[in-house]
Each structure stands twice: as structure tokens, then as C-alpha cells.
Design a protein around this nucleic acid. Sequence first.
RNA 1: GCCGGGAUGGCGAAAUGGUAGACGCAGAAGACUUAAAAUCUUCAAGCCUUACAGGCUAUACGGGUUCGAUUCCCGUUCCCGGCACCA
Length: 850
Amino acid sequence: MTADPNAPQIPNGQDDGDVDGEGRRDRYDFARIEARWQAWWLEHKPFRADIDPSKKKVYVLDMFPYPSGAGLHVGHPEGYTATDIYCRFLRSRGCSVLHPMGWDAFGLPAEQYAIQTGTHPTVTTARNVDNFRRQIRSLGFSYDWDREVDTTDPGYYKWTQWIFLKLFERGLAYQSEIPVNWCPALGTVLANEEVIDGKSERGGHPVERRPMRQWMLKITAYADELLSGIDDLDWPEGIQAMQRNWIGRSEGAEVDFEIEAGSGIDGKLRVYTTRPDTLFGATYMVVAPEHALLDRLCTDAQREAVQTYVEGARRRSDRDRQDANKEKTGVFTGRNAINPVNGKAIPIWTADYVLGGYGTGAIMAVPAHDERDFAFAKTFGLPIVAVLSADGQPATTPQTEATTEDGFAINSGEFSGLATPEFKKRITSWLLERGLGQARVNYKLRDWVFSRQRYWGEPIPITYAVSPVDASAADFDPKRDPHVVHYETPIPVDASELPLVLPDTADFQPTGDAEPPLARCLDWRFFRKDGRWFARETNTMPQWAGSCWYYLRYLDPHNDQAPASKEAIAHWLPVDLYVGGAEHAVLHLLYARFWHKVLYDCGVVTTPEPFKRLINQGMILGEDGEKMSKSRGNVINPDSILAAHGADAFRLYEMFMGPLEQVKPWQSNGIQGTKRFITRVWGLFDKPIVDTAADAALERGMHKLVKKVTEDTDGLRFNTAIAAMMGMLNDLSRMEALPRKAIETFVILVAPYAPHLAEELWERLGHAPSVSQVPWPTFDPALCIDDTVELPVQVNGKLRAKLVVPRDADRETLEALALQNESVKRYTEGQQILKVILVPGRMLSFVVKG
RNA sequence: GCCGGGAUGGCGAAAUGGUAGACGCAGAAGACUUAAAAUCUUCAAGCCUUACAGGCUAUACGGGUUCGAUUCCCGUUCCCGGCACCA
């Protein structure tokens, strides 16, 4: 298909066909056409997801957005376009596709915005949701809008609260007075996951430790299930690794150390270690500054030093304690413990490198084989005793660093010579037999701090009895009189009383103390039942609550009897493909899996995991190659791109930039290419469309294209599918007339990618809408292979010639043909041909020696 | 430090053992135009030589396997993301 330079490139030999009876016709009026089809889709609902047992179901989910005041950024449409193309493709291939969208509208960002602008969160949220909906619709996504959900809708959070009650019933929601991450600037407590380097994830405000009454969710009860469940998921390796690491399972042993006489403590000091095989090398012990025994442990002589140290550690934020490279600090308690394996007395220290919240809050220190203990021992001049080596022989030179690898035991009494794994087993049963210890599994994962001292969240459906301070007072009213709230006895709200609606108040500003705004809504907070006074919980749920189960609500969003009907759950779950940013690797994705597993145990859902397959779209960077941010001034606004180039060009460009999962920089010029594609496809239709069959070359080309676009779309390789369609456009542009069959196939292939254009063209081809309901074309594999191929010929691995030969030419013919070629001759003549390799259709390679 | 992902023209990228750079952006030349924009056509990795043709070098760097490596293996460097005193 070569170009004839003399052929008229412009049909009708004149001016781009842009003059017709009505004067100048625009090249492609995307604004009008896109608005037209968006309205048509909304009205006719071709993307409604119905349960149809005759079709294969596919549930394709986007991570729903926080409707922030800033509006959509270019990162949102990336994932949303990908799933939209995939869904349109699947529908065309005969699948029943569930593809919904909604709003994660509770939580800190929405509330911060409301506080900044002084408007009620309800108002700002509604406005932001409207804006997000408008922006998302302007991209032409094929969502089933009848299933839209909003986490702040009482009809939605009724079921968020209902799930909380399930957690409470099962003992998975409890209160605890614990040191939490208190953020004075935000006026709330944050989860560990929301604190980065001692600052709040949102806003970067300092966070301090403070003991407060909190609601906790016992996610640790599901640690093992959450860990083992990862193996069955089709998720990116990196996300799996992050979750495994976050759960942080380790196997080891608990060992009891006798405390040397004279302490008055009859108990023992229990430690957790993953290296019980190094017990003989324990030369001192460390308890965390928070350790319960510390006060009784220290001698009078050391008490003051210890207390000073503990005070310092308490005031120090996690930020300081987190720095692994900082100088080790600690204080001797004045007391010794007895190493159970060899009876030696070793000093007990307290130091903040041991964490109160992990294991038993105490360790045996083996400086020879632990980097942290080594650094500590060096700082304080404590003995270092090697108890293993690579070859089982004692080292001849002093240790300069801790050796943490496995090896063979030395200096370990009867265990000397054992390999590390065997030693671990033997010592663990040795300890067990003597009642000195036992095998033990530990997790880094902690329970989830689930309450927030904020207004804009789901009220926690718990109440407490209230009693007067002065029992003799008549007409007790806690709104007025001193009272005691009995937090120690939480009473769940009856499910029939849900939703527990957030009170409408103008007084939603955080106060900076621990008292949540809801505590000031006295009429809401206190109520009388059967003559007795009760108080509602005034903490609200965190940001993550609503997003923990939204994929479930989409299945049946208007159901007021259950989160979703059994039929809908049985039909649609699990989510077959979940697409979103990697920033949710351990937060949302772990919490949602946890809730799902609880709901599974409650019999609400029937799959052990919610999200079968996960894809992270790669971040889109600014044009400078840096992360987009207001401060850098490199933010690309989707609205302006849409206004200038249209939704189809925008969609195509975001997909054409590169592989979906790859991080890639935005290039403003780049969108010219996909916009040109749109206008050129449109321009194609100025050519006559004929009912004659396509010539052989076009026929083959179309079959190849169908194969390529089908396979690439199915594999989410949208960039290469678009490239192939561009190639076909180049071919079609060179033709004088377009065979109807070929051009129709082309429009169907383009439809998932540029749906507005395709709808318009489909109609122009004389069909009734919508192209979205036309079956996907098929291809004949035989026609995807050419009759003649260009066969490269190599001599000693270097390309020397290309032969155009029949595809099925036999070996002898090809060899003879190749050896006649001038270039090949130059390198083979007078040489001994040692070997000839033929890869049919791909390569002919000679190995020669001269 | 540990875990995960990367490194290919001026730029985004393609090719997963067989012609490196498809497709596109930006660029150059030409056509159309009074002109510009838009559109269309052609060219285009680098270097050397050159009329044609050809040669050499190239997928971060160094090795290896192979007739043949961007692709597989070993080592190194750099970049991005995550975790980071969890005993």
C-alpha cells in the first residue's frame, strides 16, 4: 500500500470538504457532539447493569474519589478511562458489566475545606460532589449512574453503622485508654497509618502522643487471615509485599528470665525473640520505658535516673524515637536477671530503642548478633559474646559489627555445633519442657484506632448510661447538671434505630482539646429512655470507614433492609478488577479486606476476599517530570484540557502516554497527536463509502487490527492498541474510497476509546444508536498472517540482507536465495558454512568460519 | 539498610530470544495560502565515508549463556515508590 504522490490527497480535489450548503462546516465540533452523546447515554442508560444469568458477569471498580474543593486532577481520569475502555469492550463482547461510581465524602479533607471556607460541610460537600459528577460525566464514562453512592448519605451510613454494630457484637470493636497520635492542629487523633515522620499525612501538622479513650478495631484478630489471603490475590507484587510487611508476621519464642533476688518481684521478665538460638549470647536485657514492671524493677539507687529517662522518652514524640540512626540512649535499672540457659547474671537496662507496644516490651540483648544491640553495647561498654559463626569455629579477630546471618552455634553448651534453624527448634522445645518459654508468633500490625474527635464522620452507634454526681438532686438533667458518663459500659444502639443521623449544627469547628464537636450538641448527645438518662458516643468514625465496604453497596444501593441483597451479592462479588492509585496499598486496601473478612464470618458476603485483581495506575507527573503539586505550579487542570481538545482526545492521550501502570510525565503537546487522530478519523468520512469488498491488503490489515486491538484491550495495553488504530488510520487515509464493512469495523474498535466520536460516526453510517451495543468484531487468525514476509538474513549474528519471500518457502529455497544475495555473498564467499538456522517467517542465520 | 519498580533517539514510548526505535510529540523540507494557523506529503538514532551504495557504533555500566540478547543469568551504578530500632 504505497502512496502515489500524484493521487489527490484531498477528496473532491478542493478544500477539505468544509464548505457545504450551509457554509463553513467545522472540522469536528467535539463540544457539541460530546455533549449530545453524554445526554443520550444519561437518558437511555445503555450502561445499566442488570443481573443477566445468560451473560458472564464482570465487576469493574474504580477507587471512588474524595470530592475535594480543588476538583478532579489528571490522575483521576487515568484509571477511570482505563476501566471505562475495558468495560465498554467487555459489554461489546457480551459480558454483563457492573461499573459504578460514587463519593467518599466524609472525613478530614472535606471537613478541613469546610472549616477554611466557613461553610457547613453539608453544603461544601454537596457542591464538591456536583462538581466532581459534572467533571466525570464530561469525560463520557459509562457508569451506571443509578448506582451512585455517597458515604455521607444517611441511607448509606446507616449500613456503615450497622457493620460497626456487627464488629461490636463480635468483640472486634472495643474502647481503650491508650497513647494515641493526637494532632492539635487538626483537633483529632490519627491512625498510625495516617502519621508520616511524626506529622499528619493530611496537612503535615505535628503529632504528639497522648493517652485518650478511643474506639479500637481488633484488626489483629485477622492478622493471619489477612496475611494468608494475599497469596490468592492477583495483585501487583509490590502491593502484596507492602501488605505482608505491614502485617509483619514473625516467628520466635517467648522466654522468661528470672529476676535476681532482692527485687521483691516474684514474677519473671518475659521477652520475645526471633533468635532463641542466640540465648547463650544474651549479655544484658532491655525493657521499654513504658514497661509495666520498670518502676518495681529499678533499685532505689537508680530510681531517679530511670524516672528522668522515662519522662524524657514519654515527652519525645515517635518522630524522634523512629530515627534508627540516632545515638542509642538508655539507663541501667540497677537490677540483674538470670539467663535461664547458663545461669549467668546479666544487667537489666531500660532504653527507648525497645518499643512498649511490640512483643512483651522487653528483649534479651545479643550484641554479637543484632545490629541494634551491638550499637547499644558499644555505647555503654557492655560485653559482646559471639555464639555462632559461619563455620562453627570461633572467630580469631574481635567483632566489628553484628553478624545476623544463620550459621553454626558456638559457646552454646550442649547445643554447640547446631545449625541455626535446627537450634531454634531444639531450644524452643528445651524451654517448653522446663517451663521457661514457648514458641510464639508476633505481628507488627496493631489494632486500628477507629475514633476521631471530629464532626464530619459517621456517628458511632454507641450510648452510655449517665448518672448524676449528686444522687439526691431532683430533676436531674445532664445537659445542665454535673454528671458521670459510664464509658466502661458501652450500649450498642439497636439496629432498628439506625441510621443514627449526624446532628445539623453550625458549631462544627474543632476546639483543640480532646472534646469532639458532637459533645457540644447537647440535645443530640443526651436523651432519656424509660426515665433514665443516656449519652451518645461523640467520637465519629475515621475517613476510611465508608470506603471499607462501598463496593458492596453498589450491588444494591437503594436497599433499606440490608447492605445489599443476597442475590446481588451472590451474583456480582467479588470485584473482578479494581483500579486505583498505589497510595492506598496498606490503608484502604487492608481495612477493606478486614471488614470483608468480618462480613464473611457474619455470613453477609460469600467470598473470602473482596478484590480479586488489582491494578495500580502509574502516577501522572507534571511536565517537569515532578509530582504535580500546587506549590510547584505544574498542575494540569482537566477542565481546561477538555475545553480545548475534548473528552475523546483527552481519554486517548492519557491512554496513549504509556503503559497504564507506569509513572509518566504529562506533555501538553502530546495531546495534539490524539486530537489529530480524532479529526482525521472524522475527516475520513468525507471520502465516499462503497459497498464493494475490501481489497486483500485491507482485508488482512483489518483482521490484524481486530486481533491487535482485541488482545491489547483485553490485556489493558491501551497504548499499543491506540498505536495500531493510528496505523490503520494512516492506511485508510491513503485510500480514495472506503469499503463499508472495513470502516464499520474500525468504528466499533475505536468506540471504547473515543466513544463520542464513534457514536456520531456510527449514526452517520446509517445505524441507530448505540455503537456501544454492537457486538465486537472477530478476526480470522489465518488472515492475520501475511503470504509473503520480509526475511532478515544474518551472517555471524549481523544483519546482512532482507529477502522478500513467500511465507511457506522451504529451507533449501531460502538458503539458495540468500546465498545469491550480494551482501550475503560478500560475507559468506570463501567461508566455511558451519550452521544454518532458520526460524520460519522470522530469521535466517548463517554461521561461517573463514 | 530491607522490599518493590525502573533506566531504550531531542521527548512519550514499541519490540519479552530473531530486522532495535512501531505509533505519537517536537524538528526539517515541500504542497496549499496574499500570509499565518490548520491540513496534506516526504525525511529523520549517532558517527564515518559517500554520487549511489556501504561501513561502524548504539537499549545505564561490566561480564556470561546463545548462531543471535533491550529481552535470560551474574555483578555494578543511578533514579522512583514503600518500609525502616518490630528484637
